[in-house]
């Protein structure tokens, strides 16, 4: 796979320039990843303004701590991890204990691939954003990022059992909402 070239410079060259404070290189790096990272921010945030805050805080961290990036991993993965950590911190700072929702009656059943095929990414992202804070964080970390419950419990400072139960509840809510959307769509 050939390296991505922006304005005649590879990612590696851009990162080297960023380390020397080259503002143009920093802007190019930002535009290279911002779209993808913004999508992640939206999934973790309560609303778009918070997503923008996460994106901006994260990229400030990326550029001020760039010297700590070790070239043995992917830069995108490193940025992604910063985004997630920032989102978790912002979520913890603003956490409120108003999350209990009576969802036990919703049965977890299977949702066919055909349902997802007609739903857009934007609609699915919105569904995740609408989840209560704890459910949203756990679902994102487990289902999309692929972290284990043990890792999630350490990241969010919660019990593993809490992580499991929040994931289950998040799935139920999402399933119900997906079904609703599907009914409307068809």
């Amino acid at each position: 796979m050939s390296p991505l070239i922006i304005n005649g410079r590879t990612e590696k060259e851009l990162l080297k320039a960023c380390l020397q404070g080259d503002r143009t290189a920093q802007r190019d790096i930002f535009h290279m990843y911002a779209g993808k990272m913004m999508a992640i921010c939206i999934r973790y945030a309560r609303h778009r303004h918070e997503a923008e805050d996460i994106l901006q805080d994260s990229f400030v961290k990326v550029f001020t701590h760039l010297c700590e990036f070790e070239n043995n991993g992917s830069f995108e993965g490193w940025v992604r991890r910063i985004i997630i950590n920032t989102a978790i911190k912002i979520n913890q700072k603003k956490s409120f204990s108003h999350e209990s929702i009576g969802l036990e009656h919703i049965k977890e059943d299977s949702t066919g691939p055909e349902v997802f095929s007609i739903l857009s990414e934007e609609e699915l992202t919105k569904l995740i954003s609408e989840l209560p804070d704890g459910y949203r964080m756990v679902f994102n970390l487990f289902a999309i990022e692929g972290f284990s419950h043990k890792e999630i419990s350490e990241m969010l400072n919660i019990e593993e059992s809490t992580s499991r139960s929040q994931l289950m509840k998040a799935r139920r809510i999402l399933q119900e909402k997906v079904n609703e959307l599907y009914i409307i769509a068809v």
Partner: peptide
């Protein structure tokens, strides 16, 4: 449902 969300959103990009 996890897989469906992952597949759809893993490489999703939005406007900056």
């Amino acid at each position: 449902i996890d897989k469906m969300f992952k597949n759809k959103l893993e490489h999703y990009t939005v406007d900056i």
